[in-house]
């Protein structure tokens, strides 16, 4: 993880300035990955699955349907298939691993994955100005999405 650490130290200052993080919130670079995944809630506030479902669908937020089929959202059109279907995903992964996948899937899978890190500052080159130093989702949105994913049992 040294590479990760080095990267985040540089980005840290910018983030502290740009996101007036809540006191209890874990900043993107402070998220702790263990063998079990990301065990601690990012906010301490339990996620809301209904909100999570909205974030999941919303093309400007999670846009998870862009890449994942999800039978639970059958009434929404156009499920992509770049990633595996998420039907029953909670039967395959525990909550801490689901959280780890959403926060930064590259830690869980490989650097090669095309799935974006939704609460990570490990990003590509030339990030557009309005997204610099920002994560795709907020900490609470990640918690909400995870709470929703946990409902997707086989």
């Amino acid at each position: 993880m040294t590479r990760r650490l080095k990267f985040t130290l540089g980005a840290m200052a910018a983030v502290v300035l740009s996101t007036a993080a809540l006191a209890s919130e874990i900043a993107p670079e402070a998220v702790e990955f263990t063998d079990d995944g990301v065990v601690a809630s990012l906010t301490g506030t339990p996620g809301d699955p209904a909100e999570g479902a909205k974030v999941f669908k919303n093309t400007g937020l999670g846009n998870c349907l862009a890449c994942h089929v999800n039978a639970d959202m059958e009434s929404d059109q156009f499920h992509g298939d770049v990633g595996p279907p998420l039907d029953g995903v909670a039967s395959r992964w525990d909550e801490p691993l689901l959280r780890a996948i959403v926060v930064n899937s590259k830690v869980v899978f490989t650097d090669e994955t095309v799935m974006p890190g939704f609460y990570s500052l490990e990003v590509g080159k030339g990030v557009a100005e309005n997204f610099v130093g920002k994560t795709i989702l907020t900490a609470q949105q990640v918690e909400d999405v995870v709470a929703y994913l946990v409902t997707l049992k086989e």
Binding site: N63, F78, G80, V82, V114, G126, V127, A128, I136
Partner: peptide, 25 residues
Amino acid sequence: YTRTGQLNMACASCHEANAGKFIRA
């Protein structure tokens, strides 16, 4: 092959690794 942007994707992410798949519609 260089990943760009907050979504951290390269041309190859979509047009090489995933050609033939659907990304939303």
